[in-house]
Design a protein around this nucleic acid. Sequence first.
DNA 1: TGCCAGGCCCTCTTTAGGGCCTT
Length: 205
Amino acid sequence: MLNSKANSLIILDFETTGLSPDNGDRAIEIGAVKLENGVVTDRFQELMYPGKRVSSFIEDYTGITNAMLSTAAPCHEVMARFSDFIQGQNLVAHNASFDKRFLDNELRRISSSYDGQFACSVLLSRRINQNAPSHSLSNLIRYKGIPSTGGFHRALFDAEMTAKVWTAMLDDITEKTGLEEVPFALIQKLTKTTKANVAKVLANY
DNA sequence: TGCCAGGCCCTCTTTAGGGCCTT
């Protein structure tokens, strides 16, 4: 039975060899935090060996080098552990369509799946933070005045930062609706409506 | 050899194009 609350779920982030699993790109790192009633209660972070060398662009972008990956467990081992970690939980990622493609691809390779639904923090931010100049993760952290020390583009760090942006948006929704608990279904509804309709959705929920 | 993502969202739109967001 999935938890129906938007503050009790898994927030995840992949680092990968590139942008498209359809073009042969693979995951090289997974990071995730488990949120329970708005509090991080568990974490998951592992590098994984994708079976090929990563480009110098990816080494520079993520700080994850071929030397680091050469001693990492293969994708199928790490993803089997991660599959266990996410069972029975709804999922959030920043630009979820990207992470969902890689999650689906890696789990399909090990004949595994998951039972949660995905929500996207970029889509929610476009509705909730309509005045934000940008909805990239680093810009939202700055826009919300959230302290951050450390480097973006590592999986666990980005998952932790996404969790902070996520809970800040839930706080905004709580303030606007008076709801004590924001339902996951309301998030899904918000991300599917137009920006102009957000106030009406919040008022009528 | 040459090519190379995909979904969302806005607008000078819908018989389309381009920017954003993720690595």
